[in-house]
């Protein structure tokens, strides 16, 4: 049995996802996440040594599209949806730090 998830863990994940949780929400979600993880623990109890891990439930590989251009979106129409646009570009608030 793995260690139970704590409110600190949930607070960290919430911060990474830029979610602002109230102390009450933090308690609620910690409880809910713990239940979900406990359910996963049930599966871990099975002997799965002979089962290949799957990235997704449907056994599909190699779904491709041909390298052929399609119609672009109209820039003016798109920029009209943006909160602020300038010089054909999206204008955003100043960014701290560099892209990772």
């Amino acid at each position: 049995m793995a260690e139970r998830i704590t409110t600190d863990d949930v607070a960290k994940v919430a911060h990474l996802a830029r979610l602002a949780l109230t102390p009450d929400e933090l308690e609620t979600f910690t409880g809910q996440l713990a239940e979900i993880l406990e359910h996963a623990e049930d599966i871990a109890a099975l002997d799965l040594a002979a089962v290949e891990p799957m990235a997704r439930p449907v056994p599909l590989v190699n779904v491709f599209r041909a390298d052929e251009p399609g119609e672009p979106l109209d820039r003016d129409e798109v920029l009209a949806c943006a909160p602020v646009a300038e010089d054909g570009q999206f204008r955003v608030p100043p960014v701290l730090g560099e892209a990772p």
Binding site: D67, E68, P69, G70, E71, P72, L73, R75, D87, F90
Partner: peptide, 21 residues
């Protein structure tokens, strides 16, 4: 000729925000 996951064109330069979908 196109982007990794869509049919917008992959080309250096061009007017800003014209290779979009």
């Amino acid at each position: 000729r196109t982007k990794l996951f869509s049919s917008a064109i992959n080309e250096f330069g061009g007017e800003p925000n014209t290779h979009i979908d």
